[in-house]
């Protein structure tokens, strides 16, 4: 077991330490998400009675686009510093690299979401604490990061890698995105958990399936 957990924890810790020292990723993700929210406010000009209808879409576009920037950073950094080869040469298994990078991206995205949502709620006068919204945010972000980690490792080896990641990631994560928007809408409309049960099921199955399959496929993307 230590053959998996030790290297995985080391990779995760490396990314977290780098972030603690530079504060590059989370800060830029936060500012970017805030910008998306502000732009959408002007684009849609939601009247107070329309906020509950438009808010789920706005918040998830902000989360998804900002999260994509974070996912991109994960491997671009390794590539630019030439540490990708070091990772590949290390005795860490490919699954350990996958889970370590995945958890780092997941944590950065969740941190960004925790920072941006209160600001968003204050700006649009929405409730701050919605349990089912928090649950779906964690589940959707996990699914997003599970697929995104594979695709960001793919995109980093292509020309024009910045455009490649959204092109690959968006269509595949459509179900997660739909689930997130729908459950958030239900939460804001004040409906209980029962209304969102089938969405939770769908996102949970997606998460489990794609975590397993992506962990298995990850080595094909990395291999030289």
């Amino acid at each position: 077991m230590s053959g998996f957990f030790r290297p995985m924890a080391a990779i995760l810790w490396k990314d977290l330490l780098l972030e603690l020292r530079t504060r590059d990723v989370v800060a830029s993700l936060f500012i970017f998400a805030l910008l998306v929210v502000v732009i959408f406010n002007f684009a849609l000009d939601p009247a107070p009675e329309l906020v509950a209808v438009t808010a789920p879409g706005i918040v998830w576009v902000a989360f998804a686009f900002s999260g994509m920037l974070g996912l991109n950073r994960g491997f671009v950094m390794e590539k630019e510093q030439g540490t990708m080869d070091g990772l590949l040469l290390s005795p860490a298994g490919r699954e350990a690299i996958y889970v370590g990078k995945l958890l780092a991206s997941f944590l950065f995205m969740v941190l960004m979401e925790i920072m941006i949502y209160p600001v968003f709620a204050a700006l649009f006068n929405l409730p701050f604490f919605l349990p089912s919204f928090i649950a779906i945010s964690l589940a959707s972000t996990l699914g997003f990061a599970a697929v995104g980690t594979v695709f960001s490792a793919t995109a980093v080896n292509t020309r024009s890698r910045d455009i490649m990641l959204p092109l690959l990631l968006m269509p595949v994560t459509v179900p997660v995105f739909l689930g997130a928007v729908k459950v958030t809408g239900n939460a804001l409309a004040g409906e209980g958990w029962a209304a969102s049960a089938s969405w939770f099921q769908l996102v949970a199955i997606f998460d489990i399936l794609f975590l397993v399959v992506a962990a298995f496929l990850f080595e094909y993307v990395l291999e030289e």
Binding site: V150, V172, S198
Partner: peptide, 28 residues
């Protein structure tokens, strides 16, 4: 080979997600 491998990974993930897309849009 590298491009071929990443494309094949996309092919597999895309194929797996297609039924999810159908069900989620239906549920939507």
């Amino acid at each position: 080979e590298r491009g071929a491998r990443s494309a094949a990974v996309l092919g597999v993930l895309a194929g797996l997600t297609a039924p999810f897309v159908y069900f989620s849009v239906e549920l939507w």
